[in-house]
Computed example of a mutant assay.
Amino acid sequence: GSSEFVKFVQEFLALPVHHYLQVYYQGLVELEDLWGEVAVSDLPGKLPELIPEGKKSLGGFELYRYFLTSGYQETALEHLERQRQVLLAIWSKVGDRHAWGRPRLFKALSPYLETDLSWRELQALQEQFKDYSFSDVQVIHLPGAEEVIHNRLYWGVSYQDINQLGCLLRGEGPAVTEVRVEILNGSGVAGQAASLAEMLTREGLQVVRTGNADHFSYLTTEVIALGEVVEPARIVSSYIEGSVIMHQPDPQAEVDVRVVIGQDYLQAGTGN
């Protein structure tokens, strides 16, 4: 329930939870008459296998099916982002309603929402954020990976990485000694991976392994964050002049950061 989830967030992320809002998705079917159908052009992804042929808008069960069903070859995180975008489209339609119609709307929504906010507070928030673009909000998922339990797909949280996420949300950077690094030689110059590994180890980082990249034609040195947060890559990049930070989340990765040495490494002065 909501109370247990709030407790989980406060304990594992060491963050206070001021308010919460839980949405029961059955309302997408029951409340179609309140906000009408959502235009297909406003739906994210527009997955053809989930949109009936010839339909220009979805509502009721069709919208619920589009919202709840995973698309072909769609990952769990991609599906979650699509669900967020559908809710944003509905939020936009709710915001377009005249003020006199909102009390009726909130009353109809009450069976499908659980929150510690009063309806007056919800209405004030709706008015406050009616012109805000939530598409600009940075979304950070709990680190983990997909797991199948009793033939159902779940998101298994990686408790090992929870502390790192909590540090980010609290504005604290991870300790240097906690950052695990893989170094790959993408320049073709022998010994560069070992040399960089030695330098980063002296600085206190954990260099887990070194090796060769998939080719030796990398022009720029890439520092790639493989987790849900980018901060570990920023730490590593600060030791490699001219390196480029990238973010490629990989739930299966055994390290936090992958460094691919490019041909600019010596020119930058860090390869001496």
Rank of each mutant, 00 (worst) to 15 (best):
S118P: 12
E146C: 10
G71R: 00
E32Y: 04
W119T: 11
E62D: 04
L105M: 12
Q123D: 05
F67H: 05
T69H: 09
L34C: 13
S70V: 15
K46W: 01
E62G: 01
A124C: 07
I51S: 00
T115I: 05
E32N: 10
D116H: 11
Q83E: 01
R104S: 15
A39N: 08
L34M: 12
I90H: 02
L87P: 04
A145Y: 14
H141M: 07
T69I: 11
Q126N: 13
N151A: 09
Q85I: 10
Q138A: 10
H79T: 13
L47E: 04
L58Q: 02
L105C: 06
K107A: 13
V148N: 15
Y112M: 03
E53K: 07
D131P: 10
G71L: 07
A39K: 08
G59D: 00
F106M: 14
W119I: 09
S92P: 13
K107R: 11
V38F: 07
D96A: 06
E147L: 14
V139E: 15
P44E: 01
G54R: 09
E127S: 12
E62K: 14
L34V: 13
E121Y: 01
T75Y: 02
G54M: 03
E121D: 13
D131K: 11
Q138C: 09
Y72D: 09
I140M: 12
S133D: 15
W91S: 14
F129W: 00
L43D: 11
G101A: 05
Q123S: 14
E53C: 07
G101R: 00
L88R: 01
K93M: 05
T69N: 04
L34W: 12
L80V: 02
Y66T: 02
D131G: 06
D33S: 13
S133K: 05
S41Q: 09
A124M: 11
V139N: 14
E32G: 14
I51D: 06
L117I: 14
Q128M: 09
V148R: 14
G36F: 06
F129M: 03
N151L: 12
V40F: 07
F129S: 11
A39T: 07
L58R: 03
I90W: 05
Q85L: 10
E81D: 09
R120V: 06
D96C: 07
